[in-house]
């Protein structure tokens, strides 16, 4: 079972990042008065994204197995997850925080 989990570590990091970013935005917008949440949301998303990318980089450099198939799958999943995390991260640079569409 640990072997199976290691295989999908990349997407697990993506999922954790997604949950943190979405949760932080929703919660901060709900509890902070309008106009004060922007900076904290931007910071939370930024930190979470950097942390996730760093984790994925580390995970990518140490695939944890010498079996070619498992190594390749682990690596490519890490790469795809990193792209997905980056896509999520850039949203906060473009779209205003806490406002209605």
């Amino acid at each position: 079972m640990p072997l199976l989990i290691r295989l999908v570590l990349g997407p697990i990091v993506w999922a954790a990042h997604f949950a943190v970013v979405y949760g932080a935005h929703t919660a901060l917008c709900a509890i902070r008065p309008p106009g004060t949440a922007e900076a904290s949301v931007a910071m939370a998303v930024g930190i979470a994204t950097l942390a996730a990318l760093l984790t994925l980089l580390l995970a990518g450099m140490t695939p944890g197995t010498a079996v070619r198939f498992r190594r390749d799958v682990t690596l490519l999943l890490t790469v795809l997850s990193a792209i997905a995390v980056a896509w999520l991260g850039i949203t906060v640079l473009i779209v205003p925080v806490c406002t209605s569409p």
Partner: peptide, 17 residues
């Protein structure tokens, strides 16, 4: 998809209230 995502996000910003 990166290009499309960025465009979509800018359009989303432009359409905000």
């Amino acid at each position: 998809l990166t290009a499309l995502l960025a465009w979509g996000l800018f359009a989303l910003r432009a359409g905000a209230v």
